[in-house]
Design a protein around this nucleic acid. Sequence first.
DNA 1: GGAAGAAGTGAAGCGCGATTCATTTCTTGA
DNA 2: TCAAGAAATGAATCGCGCTTCACTTCTTCC
Lengths: 209, 209
Amino acid sequence: MAYRRSALMQERLADNRERILAAARRRIAAQGYRGMQIAAVAAEAGMSTGMIYRYFRSKAELFVEALSAAIGQELKLLNAIADGPGSARQRLYAAVECFTRRALAGPGLAYAFIAEPAEAEVDAARIEVRQRLGDVIKRILRQGIDAGEFPPQDVDASAACIVGAYTEALIGPLAPRAERVKDRDRLTRAICDFCVRAVSAPADGRGRP
Amino acid sequence: MAYRRSALMQERLADNRERILAAARRRIAAQGYRGMQIAAVAAEAGMSTGMIYRYFRSKAELFVEALSAAIGQELKLLNAIADGPGSARQRLYAAVECFTRRALAGPGLAYAFIAEPAEAEVDAARIEVRQRLGDVIKRILRQGIDAGEFPPQDVDASAACIVGAYTEALIGPLAPRAERVKDRDRLTRAICDFCVRAVSAPADGRGRP
DNA sequence: GGAAGAAGTGAAGCGCGATTCATTTCTTGA
DNA sequence: TCAAGAAATGAATCGCGCTTCACTTCTTCC
């Protein structure tokens, strides 16, 4: 034998992988999925297009991996909030606030994963992400119901509604070309209030008319 | 001159247009935007691909027109509810119920317009649709606030949240390949309750913790 | 019946961008 | 320094599906 990967080489390979992912993230943040052509990513990373395929099986795989890492961060934060101190209501508020604030602060990435169009394979990943976001919410809701803070309700539906509510409310502001939100705090507060009210008992008896 | 469109011919042309739109709707309902290839629509309508372009400038135009008609129906119903009798709460409940029920009854179409990925040109149309859905909700909310039924709130944000909530809650069940909903009524009720609670005053003072 | 012009056909053209692969350059261990 | 094998290159390939257009068929009117 006349070749074995040295530690140095190993490192360089891993580094290349990282550079590709970083380049992909940057392209996505700038232009969304549409802007993530393999050629563009390669150029951004300073390497040839063929190189990309040495590290990722396909474009879809690269996209999913790049965004999964990003969303993983968010999920970690949300889970910490769910498992942290405070009443269920406080934690729900904090979770929604955390997500919306960060989405508003770093636009592009969140939009790409939450709302942007892509291929079938990628779509599947997005649905999964939304479900995982819903799972965190569900945990908070169950705890709140057990503690008597929230009235009994269909937690699956409520969690989906909450995820839908804050993502939709963010899509306008996050969408490319949308004018900057004038007052982020105001929007964030409105969204959080909405979500908390939605799972709390109304002042006048049953919610149904 | 030796040719002028007869009434009969005129009719046949209009009929062709309708047949194309119907075929497109069917393809969309079955497979979403992805399934609406020009060739497939032409085959479904029993004509040649070239024919499509005699009636529609582009694929995007056909898609938008096909779905605008469908969503127009929905908007008409929703507007009637918004302008109809009953308390704001009742009307909000009815509007959400109307949309979700119909979406669940005729799956595919609603999903395509509300959640499915497409091209930039089509995306713009989708955003507009969502806004128009939000506008109806906004009207109901404003009336409810004026009447003292709902507490003061950011109606833009609340309306967006409501649209997001019910669409997201429907995506799971509506998404292609998702298993049939076991109990549609139950889901519908959960969504409606959620939305009404979300805009009503909570039992214990301010929504914020 | 036949000329003028419209409707209809569908295979070929085309643009786009992911993917491949023959070739070149670099690493390793002796 | 060298041979063996890995990594890297990027131009060529390929697939997909919208769109076009040269041609055929049908309508109308005299």
